[in-house]
Design a protein around this nucleic acid. Structure first.
Length: 767
DNA sequence: TCCGCCTAGGTTTTT
DNA sequence: CCTAGGCGGA
């Protein structure tokens, strides 16, 4: 038997050995699908004798691509590993287009616009069309356009298909937006895919070239493909039909960005001769963790592919459920547990991950971990390349690569300040529109005395504009001669970036930002081995397409803090899932739509199945967001977990969940019985979880639901002694009305707490 | 045009 | 809470 098949179970082996024709592998979490992918590639090369040059593998992140290459290097040697093509849809499309975009009558040095660039361009579109940003939020409009692109609907078709007034506005913006992109010789993220599909569509000879080359096509995370990616796969696979798609419909969490779960559900219709293989054995987690995962996912409606997860890993430790008082206590609990487990030995910092729904949740964690001296790495939030000073310097580089890139041009035309204000900028745009040329071209016209005479600028303004043009021209010229690192050096010297940053932000922050700019220079050193003329393009492409998760340092011995979305594909011995509350998971923006709620459920499923040995499910009794504090309702998904699967919290200061608590009852609208709850019962005490946040009030603590406005005056006064079911006796420090509720500050034995009178069931203690 | 103060409004998730 | 944008003054 081949060396490469050793250590694989029969199902995995079948997948690896499937040679020809379409194959769909439905792989449960932790079932070794990455292993199957890499071993299949290795098998194709080493056993079947396929030339690695003829293999194309598409992964979901650059990180996954890199890791796959590394594994293959070990498996089949660096030469073969290097010869095959691995990348994300976006990076591959960028590469294809660089090679062949001239077929579409375009220039090769196109810029790639990220979300910030897209937003800026959309604002300009709205200005051009005299539309009010308040009424038509640029991001909302762009969202519509992006969805249309994902569906391969162009501006004309969009205009034809849609009938409402709003649609009509969007259609006009779409048309203009595309026109400006083209004028700027730029593609946005969506265009990378759309234009590749178009290229293949309009130029069969180009597609044919890829059919010849890529005899074997492998696609990971197939459930996350959108319509456009689906078509692209179809185009590429149409040649030899050796498509090997791997995915898990239960882990589909990218519907919001166009991923269409139907792509995986309809695989068999699309490819009638497809083999469908199931990977159900889990090698990652303990049975206790899988039971939780199963409970969560079984709470979903009917599913097309029901996988029965099982493992030989043994029962393992019971999963813990923990209620914190607020997000700080929640974070403290997490940090204390990490410290405790790390001290107990056997676990390193990097064995821990804390996962959450939204990036903003990382803040409290950061504080708690730092307070204990526990190193952490936060994945996500603001990317390094999204920092203003970094983007500003980058804009000059982008301008050097492609002077028609109007977003970059306008970004830095007055940075550092050179006396070109809003007024001048608007005039410049207007004038360029009038001439019908890109903005950079208009600037060049200005250098010519005769044209300048007709331009709407006075001598001083013209001087400022020409000063900017001179810098741009200098960089464009330097680009061909200087290595990338020197080009960056030229920019920061010529513009005195450090001085500008200190002037703008003061010495402390200024130096901070300056160090980010220096870091930018460091990253450029990765490209020194390329020929000078290729360095800039390669660098800019990487900057545009790299994700934050791609930068994670797996070597660092630090606790990982990461969103559930980014955590997909990762695994850790110990996982904390925090903020399991209505409004957060499911997120409030998703709670009203059945489909979206199901996606949120799958997100929790993804989180649960990241854990290998220990799993903690956490939520807080109160949470502060936007500076407002609200009482929370535990996530409805917790109600799908049988209570006996969970270790109950015992610590003082945490809730003891009553046997008849709706948390462990059935799902759906049955409201809790008002009697029968054990004293000291759950301090959140709320209802079925159909609503959350402030609307969760009123059903609290056996009080009447639908209570009208709330108290109009305080009923507690400083100095009174009170008793609370959980916290014991305390003294009222003060009380005030907040949002139609009474917030009482009470000093308990351990510390001061603020409680809402409607929830907290405070009894007055007579003396 | 630039600077600084102020407030109103906003955050899902990412290539 | 934080930040971007609006507005007044120089």
């Amino acid at each position: 038997m081949s060396e490469l098949l050793k250590g694989l179970n029969p199902a995995q082996r079948r997948a690896v050995e499937a040679i020809a024709g379409p194959v769909l592998v439905l792989a449960g979490p932790g079932s070794g699908k990455t292993r199957v992918l890499t071993h299949r590639i290795a098998y194709l090369i080493k056993t079947v004798g396929v030339d690695p040059y003829n293999i194309l593998a598409v992964t979901f992140t650059n990180k996954a691509a890199r890791e796959m290459k590394e594994r293959l290097e070990a498996l089949i040697g660096p030469a073969d590993a290097h010869a095959l093509t691995v990348g994300t849809f976006h990076s591959l499309c960028a590469r294809f287009l660089r090679r062949d975009i001239v077929h579409l009558g375009r220039e090769r040095d196109f810029a790639i616009y990220d979300s910030d660039d897209q937003d800026r361009l959309m604002r300009r579109v709205l200005k051009d069309l005299n539309l009010d940003e308040k009424q038509y939020p640029p991001r909302a409009i762009h969202g519509r356009i992006s969805s249309a692109k994902n569906e391969l609907v162009g501006p004309e078709e969009y205009a034809r298909l849609n009938r409402t007034y709003y649609d009509e506005i969007v259609a006009r913006c779409y048309e203009r937006y595309q026109r400006l992109l083209r004028e700027s010789n730029a593609l946005d993220f969506d265009d990378l895919l759309v234009e590749t599909v178009r290229l293949f569509d309009e130029h069969p000879e180009v597609l044919e070239k890829y059919h010849q080359r890529y005899a074997y096509l492998l696609v990971d995370e197939y459930q996350d493909t959108n319509r456009c990616q689906y078509v692209l796969v179809k185009q590429l696979a149409a040649g030899r039909r050796n498509l090997f798609a791997v995915g898990d419909d239960d882990q589909s969490v990218y519907g919001w960005r166009g991923a269409d779960i139907r792509n995986i559900l309809q695989f068999e219709q699309d490819y009638p001769d497809a083999k469908v293989l199931l990977l159900e054995q889990n090698y990652r987690s303990t049975q206790a963790i899988l039971d939780i995962a199963q409970a969560v996912i079984n709470g979903a409606g009917k599913r097309k592919h029901v996988k029965k997860l099982w493992t030989e890993n043994g029962e393992g430790l019971q999963v813990s459920l923990h209620e914190g008082y607020d997000q700080n206590e929640e974070a403290n609990f997490v940090a204390d547990e990490i410290a405790r487990l790390a001290a107990a030995g056997g676990l390193r910092r990097r064995d821990f991950a804390v996962m959450y729904r939204i990036n903003a949740q990382s803040r409290a964690l950061e504080e708690a971990l730092e307070a204990r001296g526990i190193p952490l790495q936060i994945v996500g939030g603001t990317r390094f390349y999204d920092r203003k000073e970094v983007k500003d310097v980058l804009a000059y580089l982008r301008l050097a690569a492609n002077p028609f890139d109007s977003v970059s041009l306008l970004r830095v035309i007055n940075w550092p300040g050179r006396g070109i204000g809003e007024r001048t900028e608007a005039e410049l745009i207007r004038w360029a529109n009038e001439l019908g040329v890109p903005i950079f071209q208009a600037l060049r016209e200005l250098a010519d005395e005769e044209s300048a005479a007709r331009a709407p600028f006075n001598a001083r303004t013209r001087g400022a504009l020409l000063a900017f043009l001179a810098i741009a021209e200098e960089l464009i010229a330097a680009r061909r001669e200087l290595p990338l690192a020197d080009l960056i050096g030229r920019i920061v010297d010529r513009l005195d970036v450090r001085e500008a940053l200190v002037r703008e932000h003061g010495p402390d922050e200024g130096e901070d930002r300056w160090s980010n700019v220096l870091e930018l220079g460091n990253k450029a050193l990765d490209f020194v081995n390329l020929p000078v003329e290729e360095q800039l393009g390669a660098y800019l492409e990487q900057v545009a397409l790299i994700a934050d998760v791609d930068n994670m340092d797996p070597q660092a011995d630090a606790v990982t803090c990461i969103t559930l979305h980014q955590a997909k594909g990762l695994e850790y011995p110990v996982v904390f899932l925090i903020g399991l509350e209505e409004g957060l998971l499911p997120h409030s923006r998703s709670s009203d739509d059945r489909e979206k709620v199901e996606e949120e459920r799958r997100l929790l499923y993804v989180g649960v199945t990241r854990a290998r040995q220990r799993l903690y499910l956490c939520y807080a009794f109160r949470r502060t967001s936007y500076g407002r504090t609200n009482v929370t309702t535990p996530s409805r998904f917790l109600a799908d977990i049988p209570r006996e699967l969970l270790k109950q919290p015992k610590k003082r200061g945490t809730a003891v969940i009553a046997p008849d608590s709706p948390l462990f009852g059935g799902r759906g609208g049955s409201s809790p019985k008002s009697g029968g709850r054990a004293s000291g019962a759950s301090s959140w005490g709320s209802s079925s979880g159909a609503s959350w946040g402030s609307s969760g009030r009123g059903a609290a603590g056996g009080r009447e639901r639908g209570r009208p406005a709330g108290p109009t005056e305080v009923t507690f006064f400083a100095g009174q002694r009170v008793r609370h079911g959980t916290f014991g006796e305390g003294v009222v420090m003060g009380s005030r009305l907040v949002d139609g509720d009474e917030e009482v500050t009470v000093s308990f034995a351990d510390r001061e707490r603020r409680l809402l009178a409607s929830f907290a069931k405070l009894e007055r203690v007579e003396e």
